[in-house]
Computed example of a mutant assay.
Amino acid sequence: MEGDLPEIVQVDGSLDAFDRKILEELAVNGRIPVAELAEKVGLSKTPCQNRFKRLIADGFIQGFKAILNPAKMNLDHIAFAEVKLTNTQEDALNSFNAAVRKIKEVEECHMIAGRFDYLLKIRTRDIKKYRLVLGERISNLPYVASTSTNVAMETVKERG
């Protein structure tokens, strides 16, 4: 797993080597017991737990979640939709952003600097369901002018 995570860089001077090790370990296993975490990073339990709590309080750790197996849930069809808007003024962007957050099939939404405005990662059970989501939900989002779809044939690497 080493080398699989992006390098954690010091943003504002508040992260030292122990903090970075804690974050790297938690990114791989968020359920690791504090005693085991402390051992892996080279601290005793109490200082490790204090650092862990501070990293949460300071916003370096936003939360913990279960990583679900999409294939087991019959959700292994992935499409990427490029979305071009008719208007990119701030109020239009805010309207689009609020509306796209409500579509459960949209796993990710990124504003893009390029030939289109947004890139959406959409997960459904099959192409038929994707077509419904695209036609009934995504195409009807505020300010959508056009969409273009790219279908993933295989997932080579994905981080939960």
Rank of each mutant, 00 (worst) to 15 (best):
A113D: 01
A99C: 13
D4A: 05
V11N: 04
S148G: 15
T86W: 07
D126Q: 12
E36H: 09
H77M: 10
V41D: 01
D4R: 00
E25Y: 01
M73F: 10
T86H: 08
A145V: 07
I67E: 07
R54I: 11
E82A: 15
L43S: 04
R115N: 08
R20Y: 00
S146W: 08
I138Q: 10
C48T: 04
I56A: 08
F80D: 04
A66E: 11
F52T: 01
N140S: 03
D117Y: 07
C109G: 09
K157Y: 09
I103N: 03
G3Y: 00
E2F: 00
F64K: 11
K53C: 02
I138G: 13
A81L: 15
I103E: 03
N69H: 14
I61L: 10
I122M: 12
A145W: 07
N69G: 12
N150V: 13
R51F: 07
F18M: 06
E158I: 01
Y143F: 15
E107D: 03
K21F: 00
P33Y: 09
M1Y: 00
N150I: 13
V41W: 06
F60Q: 06
T88C: 12
D76M: 03
E107Y: 02
G63N: 06
Q89R: 06
E2T: 00
P47Y: 08
S14L: 08
D91M: 01
A145S: 09
L26V: 04
A113V: 10
L134A: 15
L15M: 03
F96H: 11
R159I: 05
S139K: 09
D126A: 11
E2G: 00
D4H: 00
E7L: 11
D117C: 08
L132C: 05
Y130I: 15
G13K: 12
N29V: 02
T149P: 07
R31N: 02
E2H: 00
A145Q: 13
G13R: 10
N150Y: 14
G114C: 02
A66N: 06
G135D: 12
V144A: 14
A92E: 00
R123D: 00
R137D: 15
T46Q: 02
V34E: 01
F18N: 10
T86M: 13
K84G: 07
V9T: 14
L15H: 00
R54W: 07
L93A: 06
M73I: 11
K157Q: 05
C109W: 01
L26E: 02
R125G: 10
K129Y: 12
K102A: 10
F18S: 08
A145K: 13
P47G: 02
